[in-house]
Design a protein around this nucleic acid. Structure first.
Length: 294
DNA sequence: CGAATTTGACCCGCGC
DNA sequence: GCGCGGGTCAAATTCG
């Protein structure tokens, strides 16, 4: 981070400051994977059902979402593809301390389920990356490739956390590459990219306009490396008092879906890469595509 | 000096 | 074709 040490709790701009948050943990991933040329687009929509509230844009998923009281809803049963790396970072810390999930809730934000167009860039960047996308020159590599190729939508995984800090530590290093104002929202959306040059994972972070205390994080892509390790303890602090919390249902009882098994305590202190928690017990190991794992 | 953030400009898809 | 909105780039800036 500019000015030093994003992994320190005292990030200059409060960036990596150890967040005081409660993981609301909401996931409303909507990934779309497109193959090449004439390949069909496979849509996967997953999210954790909670009882807090549902605000699901019907068109965003293309499917009917039913609240099965706290369960994990898999709209597109391609389970083998579920597993997550990104999420691990967030979840594992909490997983080590089940209590941290007291405030778990689900919020499906329309913004999170933003449709296609928003995902294109990622692909573009993936393909062209270094190339200046805006280079108007004739054979602009970016353009040529982009047009010639089929856009490959990265897998996306989103969830909500209640936090004072927008950008939470998750075991990976991120570099901010952009920020944009979000329509109909007083809060801007920040764009981050994994600092690993070979890793094309990106993530967007924004605050919910409905509940400013909530941060919506959307990961896109899969890490091609291991995390740098989870931050020292204290990452996730149980949220105790907030209007939001009042509506929330304890994770243990309401969100503990059969498919969402949390790892045993300690697993977190092992420093590790999400894989450690992905095993059969991995929390998100069951909901995020294997490819997203490290 | 290097690394990371800021921020305006640019690109692209989409709806009208 | 045009405007809008989302996403990305990259020069400038900042700071340890």
């Amino acid at each position: 981070m500019r000015g030093g040490g994003g992994w320190v709790e005292t990030g200059r701009r409060g960036w990596w400051r150890r967040p005081t948050c409660s993981i609301l943990f909401t996931a409303q991933p909507s990934f779309e994977i497109a193959g090449d040329a004439s390949d069909d687009v496979i849509n996967h929509d997953y999210f954790f059902a909670g009882e807090y509230k549902w605000n699901i844009p019907a068109e965003s998923s293309g499917g009917a979402y039913g609240c099965d009281d706290g369960g994990f809803v898999d709209l597109d049963p391609i389970e083998s593809d579920l597993a997550g790396s990104r999420a691990d970072g967030y979840l594992s810390p909490a997983s080590s301390a089940p209590r941290s999930f007291d405030d778990v809730s689900t919020i499906i934000e329309p913004t999170v389920a933003s449709p296609s167009s928003s995902e294109d860039p990622s692909e573009k960047s993936t393909v062209t990356d270094g190339a200046a996308a805006d280079t108007p020159s004739s054979e602009t590599p970016s353009k040529a490739k982009t047009k010639g190729q089929k856009r490959v939508r990265q897998q996306r995984f989103a969830f909500v956390t209640k936090s004072e800090v927008d950008h939470l530590e998750d075991g990976y290093r991120w570099r901010k590459y952009g920020q944009k104002a979000v329509k109909n929202s007083p809060f801007p959306r920040s764009y981050y990219r994994c600092t690993n040059s070979k890793c094309m994972v990106k993530k967007r972070v924004e605050r919910s306009c409905d509940d400013p205390s909530v941060v919506i994080t959307t990961y896109e892509g899969q890490h091609s490396h291991h995390s740098v390790g989870f931050p020292r303890g204290g990452l996730i602090i149980p949220y105790q008092e907030s209007a939001f919390a009042r509506h929330v249902t304890p994770f243990d009882s309401q969100f503990y879906h059969p498919r969402l098994q949390f790892p045993q305590q300690n697993s977190l202190h092992n420093t590790q890469s999400p894989q450690n928690i992905q095993g059969k017990d991995g929390l998100l190991g069951d909901i995020v595509p294997p490819g997203m794992r490290n």
